[in-house]
Computed example of a mutant assay.
Amino acid sequence: MIGVDVTHQAPTLDEVAREAGVSRSTASRAINGGDRVSPASQAAVEAAIAHLGFTPNRAARALATSQTGSIALVIPEPDDLFVSDPFLLGVVRGVSGALAGTQTQLVLLINHAGQPVGQMARYLRAGHVDGAIITSPHRGDGLEDALRGSRSVVFIGRPFRSEGISYVDVDNVEGGRLAAQTLLDAGRRRLGTVTGPTDMTAAIDRLDGFTRALADAGLPADAVDDGGFTAAGGEAAAHRLLDRHPDLDGLVVASDVMAVGVRHALEDRGLRVPEDVAIVGFDNLGAAAAMTPRLTTVHNPLVEMVDAAARILIGRLDGGGTPGENLVLPPHLVPGSTV
């Protein structure tokens, strides 16, 4: 009969100290970050750990370092949007992947219906986690003001008031401009746009870029409707736009998910894509490739943004960097068949 050897005991901190020829306190400091430990002692402790197969006690380490060994990914969105939005799901996969191979655990915080404003911020300030990555911030969610100046918080997406806040984002203004210019270059002259909710900087900035492109071309930018970053919202917004502006021949849609709904609205009205109405989306996270014809879209560099946010946060937790750092990545067009 094969059983488990319960007589074998895991190596202790005292054994590591004896093996390394240092005091117990020196061994503890070496394991928990190397504070006030000479390079020679640090190397000896690391060699002892490898030889003995020592695994630090996470609870003891948390007490010694005032760290929990976990970071939070905060998604201030309702449950139903979280499970259906490819951008949010991509962020979760990306952050989880960035932590693979580390001993840091990921805590996922999602905004539930009826959750009081400020509840998430209070949780983060209370020290339940060592740091946080916050994505999809909204005006009025209480996060940016409550966490301003924190070294251990990084936003994916520009906050409304970014002073003292570190964030990573794509240049959404340029992305909106690029989408509109693509339609203009194709000869379209009566453009509309389906935006995201105006309590998000991504939606406002993409609309800003759209408006700038039309102003430069001497064209009106009056055909605007909010699709809420959902397929159903995009479909409803497209119907409202076409009711008000039946002469539209091009649409900039601020997310590919909404573009799926816009496509359905055009089909319902017997309008052909791109012959009657051309479409440019935004994100390039899967929905564009699945659409028939393939959606022309603006690439949102999600993988690079998530990697950068995780790198900044991990660097902060190791003592580097200062609040207020930001990184804005360029978008680019991914050609399809809808223009």
Rank of each mutant, 00 (worst) to 15 (best):
H239D: 14
S136F: 06
R161N: 14
P76F: 04
D79P: 01
S25T: 15
A259H: 12
N300D: 13
V37S: 05
D141Q: 04
I156G: 07
V303M: 02
V74S: 03
I133Y: 00
A186R: 05
T296N: 05
M200I: 10
Y123G: 00
M120F: 08
G149F: 11
P331Y: 13
V16Q: 03
L248C: 10
G118H: 04
T193L: 08
A179E: 06
A62H: 01
L106C: 01
I2K: 08
I156V: 15
V298C: 02
L327M: 13
P78Q: 11
M291A: 07
I204V: 14
V280S: 02
D145A: 15
R311K: 10
I279P: 07
V45R: 07
M291I: 12
T211N: 01
D205C: 01
P159Q: 04
E19V: 02
R206W: 12
T201R: 13
L329A: 03
D130Y: 05
D185H: 11
L143G: 04
R190L: 13
E174S: 08
E275D: 15
R36K: 14
T65N: 03
H128D: 04
H332M: 02
H51S: 15
R158A: 14
P274Q: 11
V91P: 00
I49A: 05
A288I: 03
A132D: 10
I133Q: 09
L183F: 01
R244M: 04
P197C: 04
P323W: 13
S70N: 06
